[in-house]
Amino acid sequence: MGQVLTMEGMEIVYEKPGTLTQTPFHFCPGCGHGVVHRLLMEVVEEMGIIDQTVGVAPVGCSVFAYNYMDIDMQEAAHGRASAVATGIKRVLPDKYVFSYQGDGDLAAIGTGETIHTVNRGENILMVFINNAIYGMTGGQMAPTTLLGQVTSTTPFGRESSHVGFPLKITDLVAQLPGAYYVTRQTVHTAAAVRRTKKAIEASFKYQMLKKGTCFIEVVSNCPSGWKMTPVEANVWMEKNMLPIYPVGDLKVPKQ
């Protein structure tokens, strides 16, 4: 089936940002990572800061972020993206620096780095993708896994008696005085995507005020890890994850 309409007389209202490379994403169908990659790069393009932005890629599903984002990128050791971003920001204080991490990276092995980076109030943006599972390694339990959620290492559902409770790391960092802007967003609907983009845009602008760390949690899906179709995964996320991880601003700058 070909194109239904002619494109004559029409103008482009939305296209892939030029700051994304031509490499197709390796993510599974329906994964929220691709949306957040695109939003970050859209903001970088629209603000005209392509040559002033440095990103730090994590270990996890988004490990190849440097292949997709056509800006200066640095790969970090597992969990250490915020520490590497700290170093980059201190050497190059005029650059926009962001770290991009998943829940296995930021909330498990990198918990210490995360909390201390925010506690020091480093002027960076930390983007945290929370999908309540270790996607890359085959769907094992993560610290953010919900109680009762079935994963490959909790086949009868997560029980708090063995493995504790879901770690709300965004709520933790919101209490630290070094945090300037802390918010939790999603990317499962068009309206949510617009809100997330606004949050990313605001965070890049706040960076140059040098008043503290900006932290954006994006509650996302993992259709492969959850063993669902992408559409089912988004419904499951809205029903089960959003009550535990409610969307909204946790800390907003005082005017």
């Binding site: 494109m7 007389g9 029409m10 103008e11 482009i12 209202v13 939305y14 296209e15 892939k16 940002p17 994304l20 197709p24 994403f25 993510f27 169908p29 329906g30 994964c31 929220g32 990572h33 691709g34 949306v35 695109r38 990317v187 499962h188 609907t189 068009a190 995507v193 617009r194």
Partner: peptide, 13 residues
């Protein structure tokens, strides 16, 4: 906006 693979280009009058 929701496309995870940035595969869609939109045109409008």
């Amino acid at each position: 906006l929701v496309c995870p693979d940035a595969a869609i280009t939109v045109y409008r009058q």
